[in-house]
Design a protein around this nucleic acid. Sequence first.
DNA 1: ATGAAAGCGCTAACAG
DNA 2: CTGTTAGCGCTTTCAT
Lengths: 334, 334
Amino acid sequence: MMAHARMIDVARQARVSLVTVSRVLNDPDRVSPEKRRRVLKAIEEIGYVPNLVAGSLASKRTNVVAAIVPSIGNPVFSETIEVMGTELRQSGIHLLLGSSGEDGSEEPALIATFLARRPDGMFIHGGRRTRQAEALLRASGIPVVESGDLCHPDPVDMVVAYSNYAAAKAMTEYLLERSYRRIAFVGRHYEVNDRLLERQRGYRAALTEKGLAVDETLILDRPLGFREGAEALLDLRQCEPRPDAVFFAGDVWAAGALYECARRGWSVPAEVAIAGFDDHAIASETVPTLTTVKVRRGEIGRRAAHLLLDRLHNRVVESKIIDVGYFIIPRESA
Amino acid sequence: MMAHARMIDVARQARVSLVTVSRVLNDPDRVSPEKRRRVLKAIEEIGYVPNLVAGSLASKRTNVVAAIVPSIGNPVFSETIEVMGTELRQSGIHLLLGSSGEDGSEEPALIATFLARRPDGMFIHGGRRTRQAEALLRASGIPVVESGDLCHPDPVDMVVAYSNYAAAKAMTEYLLERSYRRIAFVGRHYEVNDRLLERQRGYRAALTEKGLAVDETLILDRPLGFREGAEALLDLRQCEPRPDAVFFAGDVWAAGALYECARRGWSVPAEVAIAGFDDHAIASETVPTLTTVKVRRGEIGRRAAHLLLDRLHNRVVESKIIDVGYFIIPRESA
DNA sequence: ATGAAAGCGCTAACAG
DNA sequence: CTGTTAGCGCTTTCAT
């Protein structure tokens, strides 16, 4: 296998100096049309592919942004990543992607190894940061966008997110307004997942402010899934007295619960009201349609990308904390 | 902002030479325990993060694999990516991720720019390759795994996939065995999406071999989505005579169609049978449960990662083409 | 087991 | 507009 052609090979072929080739690639306007043409022709003939590793070392810019999400497979995160990746690519920036695990346990290790690749910026969704990983991040000096929750205890740099607390509180209040009084809550991994813990806090706050007691037996911790949602609902039906509404902290659980209701012939919301979170594509199609909280995941990716680009281009960033908000979507299920 | 500490700084602090530091990081056994300890201590104290950009330039290995999928947001692809990423990270390899668009139009540009980063390997799902992009790929000399369909016209290197043709044909035959005779087919983007075109071909072949005519009005091209599945079903009900079964080339369409049946009170499969593709998590939960084709997406990621690792470590690869197979999952809907 | 020297392929001043 | 000169921070021979 033949070694890669280098810039010097192109230069010789085009009978120009090496720098001229570099300029044609990075700043074409600074080169005369004639030489530019010759260089491009030579690149074509030789099949030259520039070596960005060398370029990055020399320029101290990699044009890479590292992104860490809890899980790539979860559409909730992949939507953000997809939009961010597309936006960044318009500016010639590539995405180094890693998943930290739903419990965020891989995050510190990922931060450290990603930093070794000298990304120009970093996006981190959720996760449990060790003090050391955080120190490394800060010391790196690169722009960092964190997401997961708006109310980050101590953001490294910038935040693009929504308030899980406020969103869940709003949905719970919506259910209370609709006169549901025994409202159950299904989430997961509260001890390691701050986002879902925040949602649970919002749920509690809404009840408490209304003067209602929080029944701990109505708060469940389950893995995410259609089946798990169905099972959670069945378990909640065993409680005495029965809950009249269930707020699932994710549409997938909620959709699974709706399927269970269909199988059992329970009418929703008459028998039991169901609410979800995320406004997954399925929410508008379930029977009955699902009342849920919409969060603009794509918008998070877009805003994060723009913040990073602003900083990389030394533009002034007006606000380091961006709230993309949330929306209660009332539908038939509650 | 302070510049990054370099290897030489660690060396001075530990009173060893720069090379010794490099060895502690890359081949610790070749360094005496005493010096190793000193170096690690110095790294800790200084907060040194190695610069892999420089390392990659010198060693000509980046420990990066580039992956291109049609869309990151589609769980069908993200499952593969997630597993592949996890497997590769065990070996210290990071993932550079890009999406080529559902029509694959971005693929040639992505291949070229990714190659410039000198990845050690590449994974490509689907896509439309230009002759030039393919030439670049071949010239790069790196191991490449292609996926999307087993019967790749002219694989660059290795293939890990299943046969869309055979899988769709098998499902159609399953439906024929169940005595359905007017079977419709819903897919999309046939002109640019070879995978779905292959599925359509499999569907046609099954009918033809059975001596049945193919009714072109029963073959639809729709965007993927729950709503679109519902609409496709409604449109197909207008056909005369009505189809007695619909084979959706994706579970999301099929689940959407099942919701439509629930809304209309049509019983499945008595009124119309429904079959899907992918064995999405939803398939076992729909009412009725969805008969579908299971493809092991995670397995594709795992096998692809192992093939790439084998080649990177100069191990012999027994087979350059791996068929992960498919499984007909009979459930209630057909 | 350790170190010195020589690049990896490119970009960034600077000078002309 | 063009070219020359120095590195970027590491890994790799090759000695010792």
